[in-house]
């Protein structure tokens, strides 16, 4: 463990206490989240991993105020999720890039800025700055269909970074991409995280991805969706791709796998 409990609580950005969420569906209630307790410190990179239906995406959506919990409490920057959303506390990256086809890449990144009322000049500056953060300099006038899937997803990350949110919530952002592109984007994401010092919540179902990226890995299990294990990673923050062949990396990956297996033994 690299971080002591004390520093976590003084720097806590996101905290969940006794969180419960039950969806009422036509097939009866679904217990999506059960008794979730978690603290995420400032500047942490936290991955949520688990099989489908474990509630990892739902938890991210609760933090973003896209779902309302049925019981328990969540605080984001010391506020309720709704207040945090209105205060533009986070940028959200979805599984699909979801760029507007009728807007250029620049226009897509400008979208949140227009809604949030930034001046024209400020918009231009921020578009240029965030495009270079994701290595898409000079692409602002291109349309989404002119970009590859990986580039589109980078543009959607730029869109989430365009305004000054300290938290970046990412819901399987690279899930639909092939492994080579994914490796590359993971590397870039780490570099971006180091440069911007944002707090990142990252949903994935890839063990190597979770271990490679995270300072903390939250292992979840389905029916009801719950946290089975929280693994603090002691890998250095500086991570070249070949760290994935190191002994330390493999050990953490092994612990994650064991955690996932333990969660499954219920059914």
């Amino acid at each position: 463990m690299t971080v002591t409990t004390d520093t976590v609580s003084s720097n806590t950005v996101i905290s969940a206490r006794g969180l419960d969420l039950t969806f009422q569906t036509n097939d009866g209630p679904i217990h999506a989240l059960k008794d979730i307790n978690l603290d995420i410190g400032k500047g942490e990179f936290v991955s949520f991993i688990g099989p489908s239906g474990c509630g990892k995406t739902t938890f991210l959506r609760v933090i973003a105020d896209l779902e309302a919990p049925t019981a328990g409490e969540v605080a984001v920057n010391g506020m309720t999720p709704a207040e945090a959303r209105r205060n533009r506390a986070y940028g959200y990256v979805f599984q699909a890039a979801g760029l507007y086809p009728w807007r250029t890449i620049g226009g897509n990144i400008r979208l949140p800025l227009e809604i949030m009322g930034y001046s024209r000049q400020e918009q231009e500056e921020r578009v240029a700055r965030t495009l270079s953060l994701v290595d898409l300099d000079g692409f602002d006038r291109k349309y989404p269909w002119q970009l590859s899937g990986g580039m589109q997803q980078r543009a959607s990350i730029a869109r989430a970074l365009a305004f000054d949110a300290d938290i970046l919530l990412m819901d399987e952002p690279f899930g639909a991409l092939d492994e080579i592109v994914r490796d590359h984007l993971n590397e870039q994401l780490l570099a971006l995280w180091a440069r911007t010092e944002k707090t990142i919540g990252f949903v994935t179902h890839s063990i190597p991805e979770a271990v490679y990226l995270s300072t903390k890995i939250v292992v979840m299990s389905p029916r009801p969706g719950r946290i089975t294990e929280i693994i603090e990673s002691d890998l250095p923050r500086e991570r070249p791709l070949d760290i994935r062949e190191s002994q330390a990396f493999l050990e953490i990956a092994h612990r994650v796998r064991e955690g996932l297996r333990a969660g499954h033994s219920y059914d």
């Binding site: 959200y92 979805f94 599984q95 979208l111 809604i115």
Partner: peptide, 9 residues
């Protein structure tokens, strides 16, 4: 998803 995105803004 598109509607959710605008809600986050």
């Amino acid at each position: 998803m598109q509607l959710d995105l605008l809600k986050t803004y």
